[in-house]
Nucleic acid binder design. Structure first.
Lengths: 210, 210
DNA sequence: CTGGACAGACTGACCAGTCGGTCTTTTTTA
DNA sequence: TAAAAAAGACCGACTGGTCAGTCTGTCCAG
């Protein structure tokens, strides 16, 4: 078995091409050419172009749910959970930006049966965010006047939108962006009192270390 | 001349169809059928399917720049400008959700010459946001530790993402969503001192009226 | 009687997916 | 254990359907 399988080479090539030009502008022939294989090789590894798109979605959403779950189980307070979730999501752009782009740009074109499968997992991720915000409110660190769904979707929006503009060779690293986003979000949702807790100071930019 | 022109009927039908299924899944024949016209009628009014897509982009981006410009000239402080920009952008979903969806979902598929034209206007809108945040910092109401570009893009993200989930028959009206987003953003960017200014209290949810 | 607004049959390019075939690896069997 | 058979991986010319755009008209207003 070679270091990279044909299937992997096809996926990598497709990912780059889809990100640049979108699912529909990319023909199977182009993917085949870029990955140095053939029509036959492609259809040996994938049932259809649709299935390839699904595979890309699947690998990404599984990864991100795992990360959210980790943040959820490794930390105690909702504030910490939220902070870590935001941080880990943004850092993920470092490696998965192409996946994210394809995920949000092309999921409309998944055929119904694939779409349903992805939607289910995406909703699970959404639910995790909702419940963190919910918990933060009932536990008292998050502002009572913020409605859970809108606040959660606002957070999602801020984070997700990054795929539209982030460049790995840009002026800010993902880590810096993650720090800033997390600061903005914590600043926005924490109560005055919670903002001043010493153990939460690390959430904010320019806090005194140590 | 009839109440609605053929051109308008085509645009409206296309808008709905593009929003539901995406540019590539919608054939000219489907648009023609839905708008009650014909292939001939279509190509009489539009040079190509591309031009129709461009028209939709154009009408929306022009509208939104106008709104941002109004917010920019009708208010004095950067804080007020930001608040109004956010608010007016979100309220715009009420009428233009389909436009926004097509705008963000399908602009990848604009042919180069159209794309350039749209990009120019989109950048102008972006610049207006950047300079409001910039001004807020130098004038002192916005937190110094926030970098202008990332903060601006975070705000964009929160707002723009709404097109992915907003439903006009959902639990929250655009006005409520606008209030919440604006609160979150102002809470996140204003300094402690600015947050307490009496004239800024109206930005926040549940402030005492009068 | 001319030119704009529209109708709709037609065409040609493009592209996802197929299919017969080759080469290599693994499994079976004598 | 060697030969034979089967399975798996991959190749690339070809096909059939789809769809943007064309072209020859018709109708009607001015």
């Amino acid at each position: 078995m070679p270091v990279t399988t044909t299937k992997q080479r096809i996926t990598d090539a497709a990912l780059q091409l889809f990100e640049e030009s979108g699912f529909h502008a990319v023909t199977v022939d182009k993917i085949v050419q870029k990955s140095g294989t053939s029509k036959g090789g492609f259809y040996h590894n994938f049932k259809s172009k649709d299935e390839l798109l699904y595979t890309i979605h699947e690998s990404f959403i599984t990864y991100i749910i795992e990360k959210a779950y980790q943040a959820h189980t490794s930390w105690n307070t909702p504030a910490e959970k939220l902070y870590e979730t935001v941080h880990s999501f943004v850092r993920m752009f470092e490696v998965y930006q192409a996946h994210v782009t394809v995920f949000y740009q092309e999921s409309l074109y998944l055929s119904p049966v694939y779409f349903e499968s992805i939607k289910k997992k995406r909703d699970r991720y959404k639910d995790m965010m909702f419940s963190v915000v919910e918990d933060g409110k009932s536990q008292g660190d998050f502002r009572q006047e913020l409605p859970v769904p809108i606040t959660s979707m606002a957070i999602f929006g801020m984070i997700n939108w990054t795929y539209k503009w982030y460049k790995s060779d840009g002026a800010y690293s993902v880590r810096e962006i993650a720090d800033i986003y997390a600061d903005l979000i914590m600043q926005a949702v924490l109560t005055e009192k919670a903002r001043n807790k010493p153990e939460y100071q690390r959430f904010f930019l320019g806090h005194k270390v140590g």
